[in-house]
Every structure is written in C-alpha cells, then in structure tokens.
Nucleic acid binder design. Structure first.
Length: 556
DNA sequence: TCTGGGGTCCTAGGACCC
DNA sequence: TCTGGGGTCCTAGGACCC
C-alpha cells in the first residue's frame, strides 16, 4: 500500500485529500510513521522526529495513528491476496508476499502481470486506496520491484534480467543492508550491488560475518530461494514507552516498570501464550540502551510473576541521570491456552520455583494462587491491563479504548513536570460524533476547546466547528468505513449541489479535484467558510489553512 | 523540540554437560 | 592434574525491518 497510514487518513477525511499529511507521534519525542506524498515533497519522511517534520512542513496536518482503522483495511487487502494463493506472508499491515505459483493463478509473465493489475484494481475498489505490485522470481526481487513501482504502479522483473538490473543499484536496496552495513561497505569502497558481487563471498564473510556476508553475496547475485511462509509463530511480546520528559525519581521508575509488565502480560495472554524469559529494557537520558533478562524455570503468564522478575532486573540497573524509555518483554514463548491444564500446572510450578529461587515468600504465595488457576483474571492493578491496552491493539471494542489509554498515560505525572493532556483526550485525527452535527473528526484541541471537522469518507469536504472539551454532545466514535458495501452514506454535511450520495461513493471523483502540486493553494470543493461555519481557534478561510493550524496544537 | 514501538535474527562469551 | 571437542542454554548487545 502506498503511504498507507497517510493515504488511509486522506481517504477517510475528504478535506485532507491532496494535502500534506503526517501520521505519527505528536508528543515532544514523537517520530513520523508515514508522510503522504504531498508531505514528502517538503522532505518529511518516516522515522524523522515529528518536531523536525513540523519545521519542514508547518502547514501539514499532523495526526495520531489509528491502528484499529488501518487493521480493518489491511484485513480486506490480505483477503484479496488470499484469493490469489494460500501462501501469503504478511510483513506488516501494508505489505505481504504472495506465492503466485502455489496459487496456480499465473503461468507466465503475461498472466502474472494481468493478475497483478487485477489485484491493484480490486484493492482500489475494496479500500479506495492505491497499492503497488512487484512481480519477480524471488521475494527479494519482488520487494525491490514493488519499491520501484511506487506509487500506484506495477513492476515486473523479467526472468534472466535480474543481475544486470541489480548491478548498478545502491547496496541499500538489498534487504538486510541498513545504515551500519551500508557505511561498512562504503568504507571498503563498495557502493553498488555489482561491486558487492565482485567482492566475492570470502571477502564479505570476513567483513560482515558468516551469515550476513554469505547472505548478502547470494542476494547480490540475485540468488534468493527463501520460501513464502504463511504462518510464522510469534517469538516474543513486548511493550515500551518513551516518556515526554525523562524520569528521575526511582520510585516512579519502579511504578512504570510494574505497569509495563502488566500491559505486557495482558498482550501475552491475549495472544494465547506464556513465556519463560522476562526482558527489561532501559534507555537512559543519553540514549544509551541496555537490556537485562531473566529466564524462569518454566513459562508463565502470571502478571505478578513477570512484574517481580522485572522489578528484580531493574535493581541491577543504574538510572541516575534519568530514563527516557522503559520496556518489558517476554520471550521463550509457549502455547498456553486457557484449557491446557497441564501447561497451567507446569507454569504455576515454574512460578513457584522462580519465587523460591529469590527467597521471596510473598512471591511464592502468589504463585500458589496461580496454581489454583485464580490468577488468570485481572492483574494486581487489573484496570491498567485493560485500559492501557496498546494503541495498536484496539480491537472491535473501538477507538474509545485508545484515548482512554492515552488518558492514563497523560495522567501519570507525580513527581515529574505535568504533561499537557489536551491531545490525549481528543487525539488529532480520531473520529467523533456530535449529537447535532453528526460524524466528524478531531482537527485539534487546546485551551479547553476541541475543533472538529464534520465530514465522512463519502461526503464532500466538511466544515469546522469548535466546542468545549467537555461538551456533552460530543463523543469519540468508531471509524467510518472507507468504501460502503450497501449502506448509503450516513450524513453528508452541507452537500454540494449535485454531490448526492451516489456520487459521493466514488473516491476517485473527489480525488481528481483535490490534487495539486501545492497543498497550500488547494481549496477543497465546498470548503469555504461560509455563513454558519464557526471559526475555531486558528481556523482560517480555506481548508488548507484551517486544517493546518487546527491540527497543529499551538500552531495557529 | 533529535532520535517511536513492535518485532526478527545474529554474534559472542561463559556456564555447563558429556 | 598443561588444560579437547562438541553441543546447548543463557545473557547482552546490535543491526535491521516496517
């Protein structure tokens, strides 16, 4: 999928189509997850600090990711892929390998290309979004082809042309060559894939180690026989938080580690696993990162056992100077279903043994309760497990869970400078519903007010209104589906003459109007602030102005 | 107002075992 | 009683990917 998160937001929010959109962390230490192609023209890209992005593209719309929404779209797309072949290997929400041979849908390059183009059309029809397809004889080459195809294209690498195609390319195109390996190779005078192949396997193994060296040499020769693997088992589960401000108070550090351990176990159990090794991760004020791990005698999914292990690990870490990130993970996973009494007993036994090892009577007591199968409910601070659920894990329960988690996060402030809770309560980009004005989304909030743009994926670009943050008529709501199956659009606020529901269902029609080289110059159809359109704080007279300032807290 | 969060894989040393 | 040669497990760190 092309610029997936940003494209999904643009499809969801008509006023953002054709505009610079940045999705990522909005706090002082946030980074960009995805920038729309319009935003990329300003130099904004993934993994860039959001603060830097704001300097480059101050008028872009800045939105928090809505993983539940993206997951729904992703599942539709993955479903289309599975119609092509049983062998589908997802790499992330927006990318997957498909083994066309195993699917029997293509017998040669002509039919393969036809399958790829039909897939792209289906993706567009089902999601309203564009995707790119790379077709080749191996995973590595298909991935390189898909990168070449972006955005909104298809590239097929003809059999027999692979090596000649790769030779002039930069080594960084190969999977497994990141910044460190890239530098390493450059210092050795190797900058292209052709030079990599010329260096020879022995030389590369000497430089990069056996596995990496041999692997890279094979890739340079376009040799890649890795199979497409549909089901891959999870090997670890982890949770981490970067804090807006470094934590200095040791007591607070301990508290956060307990919370993280509880959240981690919540996810572990939700995935039907238990685990043996507990890992604590600490990033200090100077960005130096260390991990400490402890392997238990047997797997556990008991929150208190993991919490105690994490607490022990923390005691071996010096946190003077401050801590910017804490994380807790569990690896050494075992399948651990609720019904598996044998495993349950084994886990409880292991927990008891682990507790004994440290000579802690209270731990042993809790392990005993686990033995009874009682410890499977909420953790010691059970509400936390549920409320602080992952931003990325909001299930069908809806987006309401995520803001609640954010609220918890914003409130943890004792002993540290307070964190502004504004964009936590009304996260930029989240869907809301107003009792009178209907569905819309949060453009921004601040100084006790929240600015909402009233539009839906199927409507024309909508208008902005501002409310008090505690307005009873306003509530967070489920995301609106991008492409409606049968149901007509819910509410089309202030429709244009002739822009009836039927037309509104065609995303392409609107996109065509909204495209332009300069987002600032764009005005969405029907978006002028006419009479009745309230001006929120910083709301301007055009879509671009108002969306930019209102979606950037403090920016207007 | 530099540098997220969730993962995977690899390496290397030490302990331990046969 | 101048110390081999596997193999596995554990721990810590690092590179890389999206």
């Amino acid at each position: 999928m092309d610029a997936f998160y940003a494209s999904a937001e643009q499809a969801s929010k008509p006023s953002l189509r054709g505009k610079a959109v940045v999705v990522g962390g909005l706090g002082p230490r946030g980074v960009v997850a995805t920038a729309s192609y319009e935003a990329r023209r300003f130099g904004v890209h993934s993994a860039m600090p959001t603060a830097q992005a704001r300097r480059l593209a101050p008028n872009a719309a800045y939105l928090v990711p809505r993983f539940g929404f993206y997951r729904d779209i992703s599942e539709r797309v993955m479903g289309l892929l599975r119609e092509l072949s049983p062998l589908v290997e997802p790499l992330s929400l927006d990318e997957a390998f498909v083994d066309l041979e195993a699917g029997g849908v293509a017998s040669d390059e002509v039919s393969a290309r036809a399958v790829g183009e039909r897939l792209r059309a289906d993706i567009r029809a089902v999601t309203g979004l564009t995707g790119s397809v790379g077709i080749a004889a191996s995973k590595m080459l298909a991935k390189i082809a898909s990168e070449e195809a972006k955005p909104d294209g298809l590239v097929l690498i003809h059999a027999g042309t692979e090596r000649a195609l790769l030779a002039p390319m930069a080594v960084r195109v190969l999977p497994g060559v990141g910044p460190a390996t890239g530098d390493h190779l450059r210092r050795a005078g190797i900058t292209t894939v052709g030079e990599l192949a010329e260096a020879g396997e022995d030389e590369l193994v000497r430089m990069l180690g056996k596995s990496h060296g041999a692997g890279l040499y094979a890739m340079a020769l376009a040799r890649d026989d890795r199979p497409v693997v549909a089901e891959r088992e999870t090997k670890s589960v982890s949770v981490e938080d970067t804090y807006d401000v470094d934590i200095h108070d040791r007591t607070r550090v301990r508290l956060e580690v307990q919370r993280l351990a509880a959240r981690c176990v919540g996810r572990l159990r939700a995935s039907g696993h238990s685990g043996r090794t507990v890992v604590l991760k600490v990033r200090r004020y100077d960005f130096s990162t260390l991990t400490r791990s402890e392997t238990l005698r047997g797997p556990t999914d008991d929150p208190s056992v993991v919490q105690e292990a994490a607490a022990r690990l923390l005691e071996s870490v010096d946190t003077t100077g401050g801590v910017r990130l804490l994380g807790v993970g569990v690896s050494g996973l075992a399948d651990y279903t609720q019904e598996d009494l044998f495993a349950q007993a084994a886990g409880a036994r292991a927990a008891a043994e682990a507790a004994e090892r440290t000579g802690r009577a209270d731990a042993a007591a809790r392990a005993e309760s686990a033995d009874e199968g009682q410890a499977r409910g909420a953790g010691p601070d059970g509400s936390l497990i549920h409320e602080a659920g992952e931003k990325g894990e909001q299930g069908p329960g809806g987006p309401a869970g995520a803001p609640a988690g954010e609220g918890v996060r914003a409130e943890r402030g004792s002993g540290e400078p307070p964190v502004a809770p504004v964009e936590r309560r009304w996260p930029a980009g989240h869907d809301v519903r107003h009792a009178v004005y209907g569905p819309g989304w949060v453009q921004g909030s601040g100084v006790g007010r929240v600015t909402v743009r009233f539009e839906t994926p199927q409507s024309a670009p909508g208008r902005v209104r501002t409310f008090a943050v505690d307005d009873r008529d306003l509530e967070l709501s489920e995301p609106v589906a991008l492409v409606l199956e049968q149901v007509p659009p819910a509410v089309a606020p202030e429709p244009e003459p002739g822009a009836g529901p039927g037309e509104g269902q065609q995303p392409e029609a609107e996109r065509g109007q909204g495209r332009g080289a300069e987002p600032e110059a764009e005005r969405g159809p029907g978006a002028e602030s006419g009479p009745g359109a309230e001006s929120g704080p910083g709301a301007g007279s055009s879509v671009a102005d108002s969306s930019a300032s209102a979606a950037s807290p403090g920016g207007g």
